[in-house]
Nucleic acid binder design. Structure first.
Length: 271
DNA sequence: CTCAGCGAGTGGCCGATTCC
DNA sequence: GGAATCGGCCACTCGCTGAG
């Protein structure tokens, strides 16, 4: 039963905050583990001897990165709390299994596209009929990870229901997306300066063209854009404004708030 | 002309089931 | 009992369209 089942959308932020404060893992620690494991992924080497390959050299598909990341995350979590957490083993397990209370188990989803969206498969959305065949319940706690190449751009923590996954109209389209309300009210961005390492092309309003122009004058990351103080034309100023909004949403530190028992974390919902 | 968003196609892997 | 097929798992990539 979804905690959101009978709630209207304006109640979602409160429910999300409650779910997060009820969870044994602290958002700040989730972010910490994510950052440690992200670094760790990119220290991976394949092969041995004179043909050794660093992971970065072969730009692996996002699925591969996501898989490595998930495994490292599970291992680090189990290392810190061996009695409480373990990685998923069977098809019925979520990626991170909470030993004492499976309701607290977490699914990790990663996306390596230029943006802050995450994707599922169309099968996530379809319930009922084959319910007895469904291995994993697609509702529950989620950690979502956005990255681009080897840059970690955003980690979120929250709850997603199976019914939040919206399949494409055509049956042949296998992708499923999330309604904007889900990003806004059911997922908490784990803010930090790391988010400013995101490539500028990820910003909404900056497409390939402008991105190329900015890179030509040395602006590659959001932080570069914010700190840039050279000559600025109209589109650069506009881009800077977008970057500052982005900073507010995803980079302003939240950690202090989480160290106090009260108040619970707040969503960046109504900005 | 630039960009965002939407729609749809692609394709490999795996375990379970059905067919021969 | 082994081969073939199916459903689920996993997400990326490209093309089109309309707004600014």
């Amino acid at each position: 039963m979804s905690p959101y089942a009978t709630a209207s959308i304006d109640q979602w932020p409160d429910i999300t905050n409650q779910l997060i404060s009820d969870h044994p893992l602290h958002p700040a620690e989730i972010l910490d583990i994510a950052q440690v494991c992200w670094e760790s992924v990119w220290e991976t080497q394949i092969g041995s001897g004179s043909t050794i390959i660093n992971l970065i050299e072969i730009s692996p598909p996002a699925t591969v990165i996501g898989y490595f990341f998930e495994k490292l995350f599970a291992k680090e979590l189990a290392r810190r709390y061996p009695a409480e957490w373990r990685g998923g083993v069977t098809g019925n397990d979520k990626d991170l299994v909470c030993i004492a209370d499976n309701q607290k188990s977490i699914e990790i989803k990663a996306s390596g596209q230029l943006g802050l969206k995450i994707y599922g498969n169309r099968s996530y959305g379809q319930e009922a009929e084959n319910a007895h065949l469904v291995k994993k319940d697609k509702s529950g706690y989620y950690i979502t990870v956005n990255f681009y190449a080897n840059v970690l751009t955003l980690v979120r923590f929250g709850w997603i229901d199976a019914s939040d996954w919206q399949a494409q109209k055509a049956a042949t389209g296998q992708m499923a997306g999330l309604n904007p309300n889900v990003y806004e009210y059911k997922l908490l961005p784990l803010k930090g300066r790391y988010a400013l390492n995101a490539p500028i092309g990820l910003l909404s309003g900056i497409g390939p063209k402008l991105s190329g122009e900015l890179q030509a004058i040395g602006i590659r990351r959001v932080i570069d854009l914010i700190q840039y103080d050279g000559e600025a034309n109209k589109s650069l100023l506009k881009a800077q404004k977008i970057a500052l909004t982005y900073e507010d949403l995803f980079a302003k530190e939240f950690t202090e708030a989480f160290d106090e028992p009260q108040p619970p974390p707040t969503l960046v919902a109504d900005q």
